[in-house]
Every structure is written in structure tokens, then in C-alpha cells.
């Protein structure tokens, strides 16, 4: 990696100032993604601004009124084993426990994941399905964005100069079930080809309300609004699940690359969507245990 100056701000305000003072700098959270880019010299920042000393970026708390607050520097492993996350957003804890591999779960952070904007990861779609807020802070103040406002494009976010993600908030949910399905092209792959995240409220066999998201195969995680509208208020049968999946698959704009062309990705998104819905409504014989 190229030489750089290394800075360790102690507060969000100080970090923000440093970022503005060094526009050629890179912000480092857990470092799992940035280190790869640095080592391959894909990025050559003048400064690396590490957030690791900023206490305000840590911790996981919950209040009945505001829901979960997860510090941006929370490690995936901390999210996975946090009793608060497991109680209030079990699908997030479950996703975090299966993401990547043990080492990366101990090094990567939830905030860093969002800021890198890599579509081939699991947290963004899961957080969008949970209607999470991304809290951005800078010397100028605070902004709160939804995940689909924050993730703007392939490796691009709404972060402005001097802004950092301080926390993720997951508001109290009216949903009572959900699952994040991670679909690998083959069992030996390290990154998801596609993922499907769903939050829903059940009434017997019917779906009262639902949020569905496809990620990893799209430039940014994509809400399946038509599919959601079609599903709401209906009894979920195998046929409905297939209809919902067809609709959902038609709503995404899949990327094409060496890991999978667009039409294959769309097919797999459809399958992941349908199977997950079937599993949630008919747990018998399901491969995926739907935490709720």
C-alpha cells in the first residue's frame, strides 16, 4: 500500500474537521474493505482517518420509544450476539451471525459496511427491510436517511464531505416476523450473489403488512413495492408466493458481471424470494428457520 498519514480523531467533530482538511483522505472503521483496496492500491489516500477511538460510535442500546440504536462501529459479531438486537431485530442478529466468516465478523463494522457501498454484502438489504435510519453527523449537524436514500449507487453513498455515519437506528416495528436469506451462487462462494430480506406481520395464514428487499444483485438494495402491495392483506399460498416472487423479480435491475449475468441473478432473486415467503408461512420442511 502507498504511504499515508494516519490520524485518530477522538470525537465525531474532530473527525469531521480532519476529513474536510484532507479531502484526499479515507475514513477507516473496521478496515476489512478499505485494507483490501489499500493493499491493491485501488485507493491511495493521503490520510487514513481511523474512527476507532471515537466512543460515541460504539455501543448498542434500546428504548421502547426510539427502538434500537447501533453504533456505527459495532462489529458484526457484536450485532450477532447482542441480546438487545436478538430481541428487537432478530433477523439482523441472525444475518450478522452468518455474514462473511468469523474473522471478518470480528473485524468489520455495520457502519463501515454501509459506507463502503459494496452491493455484494448482506447488511444493507437487511437494514432496509427493517426500515432502519442511517444517522449522519458532521460539524454542520445531523442528517437522518433511510438506507435506500443513503445507498445511492454502486459503491456510492449520500455521504457529504466531512460527514460520517454515527449510528444505525431501527425504529420499533409493527412487524412480527422476518428473515434475511443469503444466496450463494455455489457453496464455495464468499459473497452473496443475491439476498432477500423481508419483514412482515402475519394474521394466521394471511400477510397483513410486508416490506421486501432484494440486494447484492442490484446496484443498491431495492424495495419490492409492487410485490409488497400485491401481498398485503392476502392469504399466503404457494401460488401467491410465486406471484409475489415474479412481481418482485420484475422490479429489480440486476447487475451483470463475472459472478452472474443479469438474467441468472433475476431468476435467483425470484427463487430466493419465493422460497423465503413459503418458509415463513409454512415452516414445515423449510430449510430456512425464520426467526421472528
Amino acid at each position: 500500500m502507498k504511504d499515508f498519514d494516519y490520524l485518530e480523531p477522538a470525537s465525531i467533530a474532530e473527525a469531521s474537521e480532519m476529513m474536510l482538511a484532507h479531502p484526499g483522505g479515507s475514513v477507516m472503521a473496521g478496515g476489512t474493505a478499505l485494507m483490501l483496496a489499500l493493499r491493491q492500491r485501488m485507493v491511495t489516500p493521503s490520510h487514513v482517518i481511523s474512527l476507532r477511538r471515537i466512543r460515541d460510535l460504539r455501543g448498542i442500546t434500546h428504548t421502547p420509544a426510539e427502538g434500537l440504536r447501533i453504533g456505527a462501529l459495532a462489529l458484526h459479531a457484536e450485532v450477532a450476539r447482542s441480546p438487545l438486537v436478538r430481541q428487537h431485530a432478530p433477523m439482523l442478529a441472525d444475518m450478522a451471525s452468518r455474514l462473511a466468516n468469523p474473522q471478518v465478523r470480528n473485524q468489520g463494522t455495520i457502519g463501515g459496511n454501509l459506507c463502503y457501498g459494496d452491493p455484494a454484502t448482506d447488511p444493507p438489504s437487511c437494514l432496509l427491510a427493517l426500515n432502519a435510519d442511517v444517522v449522519l453527523r458532521s460539524a454542520r449537524g445531523t442528517r437522518v436517511l433511510k438506507v435506500d436514500q443513503f445507498a445511492t449507487d454502486y459503491f456510492a453513498t449520500a455521504l457529504e464531505p466531512g460527514e460520517i455515519v454515527s449510528e444505525i437506528r431501527i425504529p420499533p416495528s409493527a412487524f412480527d416476523a422476518g428473515y434475511h436469506a443469503r444466496f450463494l451462487r455455489t457453496a464455495a462462494e464468499h459473497r452473496p450473489l443475491v439476498n432477500f430480506a423481508v419483514s412482515l406481520r402475519k394474521q394466521g395464514d394471511a400477510c397483513e403488512d410486508v416490506r421486501m428487499v432484494i440486494g447484492a444483485s442490484t446496484r443498491v438494495p431495492t424495495r419490492l413495492r409492487k410485490a409488497e402491495d400485491w401481498m398485503k392483506g392476502k392469504t399466503v399460498t404457494a401460488r401467491l408466493a410465486a406471484e409475489v416472487a415474479d412481481l418482485g423479480a420484475s422490479e429489480i435491475e440486476p447487475i451483470s458481471d463475472i459472478r452472474g449475468d443479469g438474467s441468472f441473478r433475476r431468476d435467483m432473486a425470484r427463487t430466493a424470494c419465493r422460497r423465503t415467503i413459503e418458509d415463513l408461512f409454512n415452516p414445515a420442511g423449510s430449510a430456512a428457520t425464520s426467526a421472528a
Binding site: 478496515g31 476489512t32 485494507m35 466468516n101 474473522q103 471478518v104 473485524q107
Partner: peptide, 27 residues
């Protein structure tokens, strides 16, 4: 490797396993 996949560099930090090639010494 350079991509954080092979795990040959795994060490424990405060008892948790990490990949030391994905971490700076200053960390």
C-alpha cells in the same frame, strides 16, 4: 492472499480471531 480470504494470517486479538492482513499494526 491479498483479499482477506485465505485466513493464513489469523491471530487472536483480545481472544477473538481476526485476519492480521486486514488490520494495521497501529490498530
Amino acid at each position: 492472499c491479498e483479499t482477506g480470504v485465505c485466513g493464513c494470517c489469523s491471530v487472536l486479538i483480545d481472544g477473538e480471531v481476526i485476519k492480521s492482513c486486514l488490520s494495521l499494526a497501529v490498530h
